[in-house]
Design a protein around this nucleic acid. Structure first.
Lengths: 338, 338
DNA sequence: GTGAAAGCGCTAACAA
DNA sequence: TTGTTAGCGCTTTCAC
C-alpha cells in the first residue's frame, strides 16, 4: 500500500533501517526459526515504513519464487476457465501466487519457459506433449498433468471419467431411440488412439459402445477444424450426408454450441439431439439447455493445485485424482423421431 | 527439445563445452555486439548439445525477464478472453512471453506481485485501483491500463468508446419505440461516478441520454451481485416492479446472458428487448442472437501489448488508444409492444 | 573480438 | 538469538 518512488527498496535498506542484519530480515519475512519478538517487531516496522517487497527474481535464484504456473492451451475454452477458477481458489490463502501461461502453438515452449525458473511447480493441460518428455520435466520441477490417462511415475495426474461419461451419454441416447449417432470431436492430432487424451478416450468409447450395440456400421465421426466456429461447418457436413445422424455427440460444450448454432441456423432446432461435455454454465442456460456431462472442472483445477502444493511440501510418489462424471440431462437431447 | 537430466545446465557449462568465457555465451544468446561468426557457431552448438536454457530468475535479477504480465480481474468473463487472445497474438513473435495473473480480490496484491520482478511490464484491467497508486506503479515499471478514461501521465491507456457505444444502443431502442428502458450494470464499487471505469461511463451515459430525451423519471438502474448468476435475480427484480421496463440495457454480454435466461425461464422470451456490450461470440449465436456493441476486444488487447512493447523499447511519453464502438443489431432488441 | 571480475537481491550455512 | 559470508546464474563494464 505504501507508496515507493524511484529505485526499489531492498532487503539491505530494511536491515539498515531496522538496525539488524540482512539475514535477520530474511528470517522474518520467511517466518524462519530463530527471531526474537523484539527483532521481529522492529523489522516489520521497517518493512511497513519502507514498503519493502522481496524481489521474486532474487528469491527464485536462491530457492523458490512462490509462483505456480498453469499452462493452458486455449484461454477462451469454457472448460479451461473452470480449471483456472478452481486452481485460483485452491491457491488462495497459501503463500503462492498462480500465474497462467497461455500456450501459443507447441506447448513445449510454454512449459519450458515456465520451468526456466519462473515458477516452483507446473500444472499443465497439454494434450500434445510426449509422456517421456514430461517425465523428464517432472524430474526438474514438480508437475501435475490434467487430462491424461497414462500412468506416469514422475508427475501427478488429474483426469475425468471419460469412459463413464461417454457411456452415460450413449446409453441416454439409445434410451431415446437413437441409432444413427454421430460423434463430432477435435482435430486428429488431439484424438490419436492410445494418446490418452480425454478426447481420444471419448472417441474410442463412442466407437466401442456403438460396436457393442451392433451399430458399428452407423459410426460417423466428424472433426472440427481448430477454429471454434468450424464446428458449424463440420455439423453442416454431417447433416448433408445421405444418412444424416439423428443425434450428435459433441466432444465438449464449446463444440456443442457450434452444433446447436448450425442446427438452429437451418431452422431445425429441436429436431436433432445434441449433447455436450463439461457442463459449462452455458449448458444450463435456458436458451441453450444442453445435455452435458458434469466432470467438475473447478474441482479438477483445485485438486491439481492442491497436489502440486503437496509436491512442493515434499511428496515424491506420484498420485492420481479421478473426477466423477455425471450426466446432466436437459432439453437438447430430444427423442428420436424415427 | 533436448532432454536434460538432474541439475540444470548453466551458462558456465555452455562456456566450458564451447571453450569460451561465460561473457561470450551471454553475448551470443542476447545477440549482443562483438561476437565472431566462428565463436557464435561454437557456442550455439554447445547450447544445442547441452539443451541449455537461460534462467529467467538470473536474467531478471540483472535486467529483464522477458515476461509481460497481464492482470485480469475475472478469467471467465468473455470480454477478458478477447483481451487475452489479442495480447497473446501481439506478443507472439517477439522475444517476450505473456503471463496472466488472475486477481483474487483486491488487485493491488496481484499487481504488486507482478511488479516484484516477475515481469518487465504490466497490462492491467483493474477498475478498482487508485489512479495515484497506478502513477506510482508506472514509475517503477512500464504499465498499460485497459478500460480507464482518465488521462494519466505515467502510463498508457486503452479504452473503448463507451459513450458512443451506449448512445448507439439508446438511440436504437428509442427508434424501436422503447421509453421504459432499464440499465442493469455491475455492483456499485465498479460504477462509482467519476471513477472513469467503462461501466461508470456507460451508466452515466445512460442517465444523460434518458434525461436528454425527457425520460428522467423513467430511469431504472439495477445491479447484479458479484456472482454471475445473480444477473438473473436482478432481472427478476426489475420485471417485478410496478412499471417494469420494456427494454433492458445490460452492462455487458455476460450480464445480458443472465437477463435472457431469466426472461426465457419465465416464458417471456422475445417480449422484452435486451442489449449487451462487447459482442462476444455468444451474442452471434443463433439461439442467443443478442444485439451488442462491438468494441474490438482482441484489438484492444493487441494494442495494449504493442504499446507495452514500445515502452520497453524506450518510449516514455504516455499514449492512449481508443477503440471504436459499433452497434451490432440482432434479434434480441425487439420492438416495443406498447 | 574476447575474457576477467564485480555485483544484481536474496537465502542458507556457519560462526559468534 | 544474531550476524557474517559465500554464492545462486546471469549481464555488464572494462581491460586485454
Amino acid at each position: 500500500m505504501s507508496i515507493t518512488k524511484g529505485r526499489s527498496v531492498t532487503i539491505s535498506d530494511v536491515a539498515q533501517t531496522a538496525g539488524v542484519s540482512r539475514a535477520a530480515v530474511s528470517k522474518v519475512i520467511r517466518n524462519a526459526y530463530g527471531v526474537s519478538p523484539a527483532m521481529r517487531e522492529r523489522v516489520e516496522a521497517a518493512i511497513g515504513e519502507l514498503g519493502y517487497r522481496p524481489s521474486v527474481a532474487a528469491r527464485a535464484l536462491r530457492g523458490s519464487s512462490y509462483r505456480l504456473g498453469l499452462e493452458i492451451p486455449h484461454v477462451s475454452a469454457r472448460f479451461m476457465t473452470q480449471i483456472m477458477e478452481g486452481a485460483k481458489q485452491a491457491v488462495a490463502g497459501t503463500p503462492y501466487q498462480l500465474v497462467l501461461a497461455p500456450a501459443h502453438g507447441p506447448e513445449y515452449d510454454t512449459l519450458e519457459s515456465l520451468a526456466d525458473g519462473l515458477v516452483d511447480g507446473i500444472i499443465a493441460i497439454s494434450p500434445l506433449v510426449d509422456p517421456a518428455w514430461l517425465e523428464d520435466l517432472g524430474r526438474r520441477i514438480p508437475v501435475v498433468m490434467l487430462g491424461r490417462h497414462d500412468h506416469p511415475t514422475g508427475y501427478d495426474t488429474v483426469v475425468g471419467d471419460d469412459i463413464g461419461g461417454t457411456r452415460a451419454i450413449m446409453t441416454h441416447l439409445f434410451d431415446l431411440g437413437h441409432r444413427r449417432i454421430a460423434h463430432l470431436t477435435e482435430p486428429e492430432a488431439v484424438t490419436r488412439p492410445g494418446s490418452g487424451t480425454p478426447h481420444a478416450v471419448r472417441l474410442e468409447t463412442y466407437r466401442t459402445v456403438m460396436t457393442e450395440a451392433g451399430l458399428a456400421d452407423l459410426i460417423q465421426i466428424a472433426r472440427r477444424e481448430d477454429v471454434p466456429d468450424l464446428a458449424r461447418a463440420a455439423t453442416a457436413d454431417l447433416l448433408a450426408r445421405p444418412e444424416p445422424p439423428t443425434a450428435i455427440v459433441a466432444g465438449h460444450d464449446d463444440i456443442a454450441m457450434g452444433v446447436l448454432a448450425e442446427i438452429a441456423a437451418t431452422g431445425r432446432h429441436g429436431e436433432i439431439a445434441v449433447t455436450g461435455y463439461d457442463n459449462t454454465d452455458l449448458a444450463a442456460h435456458p436458451l441453450i439447455d444442453l445435455t452435458s456431462v458434469d466432470q467438475q472442472g473447478m474441482e479438477m483445477g483445485a485438486q491439481a493445485a492442491t497436489m502440486l502444493l503437496e509436491r512442493l511440501q515434499g511428496r515424491t510418489e506420484p498420485r492420481r485424482y479421478r473426477a466423477t462424471a455425471t450426466l446432466q440431462v436437459r432439453g437438447s437431447s430430444v427423442r428420436s423421431a424415427g
